[in-house]
Design a protein around this nucleic acid. Structure first.
Lengths: 94, 94, 94, 94
DNA sequence: CACTGGAAAATGCCGC
DNA sequence: GCGGCATTTTCCAGTG
């Protein structure tokens, strides 16, 4: 049955193209990041430390999210509404 | 001198935010890629092979670029002008 | 229970020593390689190109292996027995 | 003049072979190290921590050597004999 | 002596 | 849940 194979081929082609397209974007962004670090260095910042800063903050975020997830879990367990994304109006000004 | 430090702080903040923003985007794209693979699997494709296909194609591209770079290196080593992008017509007589 | 801990300590010590010994050897070899490059340079070879030669050859080897791995992967995917290293006689009946 | 070129070629070949031989050895040792880590894990050790141990000790050694080098430098500056490798007999028992 | 590029190490991800 | 693999990050040597 030729059509089935042909269909699969077309599908495969589509998948490959989508993935390659996305990877291309990812690569572009990675390059952008590299550029920002270069700019930082040009402005006298120590990139090694800068990277540390980023990674520490990332870890903090992860912890925070974990805590929130945990909280959400508890709320669920208690039958209360959780997870109101983008909290109900109001201002944002840390 | 406070102003200088303050300036550096503002600059640092900006850099950190830009990087974090970009990393966020990168993460999103990575998730998209994952999704495509999931979709592929759902349609009966062997993701392991699909990944291999992608990686082989990537390698091929890299190889082409590598060859050009290599040629350029040799040209340099031989004292010949390389890398005339889209050589602007005209002759090159040794 | 002291003995168990003591045992673990001894074991740990052994592992650390073995690793450190191996890393030492590795370091020595790296130094040897450096020496060979120095000798090459002293004999008028362009080390940059020499390095390139080495890396290209390495890549070629890797490619060969990659092809075999790829073939093996396909064979697996097709449900065929692969990788019968110097097939040890005897039959293989599906 | 053919002979000169031929000689260079032979020399180049020799260099390449020596380097490749050494890199092969290095690779083997790296594999050995990996094996030791695997064995450690099989015996219930946390490889991540084990790696940390190794790296800390390495840093310690480096510092120690630096200190010794510095000491040696001072000794030299003072016209005193430095660097008696393998200290003169006596026991070693930390 | 700072920068670039390549090797090594560490991390995360996927399939079993 | 683990082991292997791919990617990413870190480190270091060579170069200008």
């Amino acid at each position: 049955m030729e059509t089935k194979t042909a269909f699969a081929q077309g599908q495969l082609r589509g998948l490959v193209e989508r993935i390659e397209r996305l990877e291309e974007e990812k690569k572009t962004i990675a390059a952008d990041i590299k550029e920002v670090y270069a700019e930082a260095k040009a402005n006298g910042f120590d990139t090694k430390i800068l990277r540390k800063v980023i990674s520490v903050r990332k870890k903090d975020h992860a912890e925070r999210e974990e805590e929130e997830a945990l909280l959400s879990l508890y709320m669920h367990a208690l039958g209360m509404a959780p997870d109101l994304e983008e909290a109900p109006a109001a201002a944002q000004q840390a």
